[in-house]
């Protein structure tokens, strides 16, 4: 019996040593690059995500600075779903199936990397932010307005839509766990019907 136990311990040790070897090899491969110190006057200021409003307003900051980490930090790491409005779904059928955090991050990086400048107003002035209660908060009918200008051909496309947004308290911070686009909204000045961000997402996800 003692011999068997010794043999078992040896096997376990070999397995542990192999695992540690892999860990060490892994450590060498996982060193991030050294970042440049921040340049003066280009500071992107985010709010701590202590309330749903902080999270939503950080999207605006992220979009205007085309700084993807800010958008990524607002999206829930445990569960995120995006549901498009019918108009976006009809324009890009099937593209939004299973739209999760990974696809949202892929979208926002593709958008920001495509030489664009963005002007964003993520909530309309009339929207009354409900105080958060418990560990989940729902914003119904918030209207966002995002204008994307291409640096290549200087063309400008505006997206405006109403959405239901669900925020979840995970750990100590709030995150967006569900984004449901309800319908496209009109340009307040010209009255022209605009598209929701579902069309923007669909465009970058389908190519």
């Amino acid at each position: 019996m003692a011999q068997v136990a010794v043999l078992m311990r040896a096997r376990v040790m070999r397995a542990v040593m192999a695992a540690l070897g892999c860990l060490l090899a892994g450590g060498c491969l996982f060193a991030p690059r050294v970042a440049e110190p921040p340049a003066t006057g280009e500071i992107v200021r985010y709010l701590e995500q202590l309330s749903p409003a902080d999270v939503w307003d950080n999207l605006e900051t992220s979009a205007e600075a085309t700084h993807a980490p800010g958008w990524e930090a607002a999206i829930s790491q445990t569960s995120f779903t995006y549901v498009p409005d019918d108009a976006a779904e009809n324009q890009y059928p099937g593209v939004f199936t299973g739209w999760d955090r990974e696809r949202e991050l892929s979208f926002i990086n593709a958008l920001y990397n495509s030489d664009v400048t963005i002007v964003a107003r993520m909530r309309n002035l009339e929207f009354v932010v409900p105080p958060s209660s418990g560990s989940e908060s729902l914003w119904e009918g918030v209207i966002y307005d995002v204008t994307v200008t291409s640096g290549v051909d200087a063309s400008t496309v505006r997206y405006r839509g109403s959405a239901d947004i669900t925020f979840s308290l995970e750990g100590n911070f709030w995150y967006i766990s569900r984004w449901v686009d309800l319908e496209p909204e009109s340009d307040p000045v010209s009255g022209q019907l605009l598209s929701t961000m579902g069309v923007l997402r669909g465009n970058f996800a389908s190519k």
Binding site: P32, R33, A35, E36, P37, P38, A39, E42, I43, V44, Y46, A65, H67, P69, G70, E72, A73
Partner: peptide
């Protein structure tokens, strides 16, 4: 978790 923007124009929140 470590988020690092490499360029100085956006590294202030690293």
């Amino acid at each position: 978790s470590e988020d690092a923007s490499i360029r100085g124009t956006s590294s202030s929140n690293n």
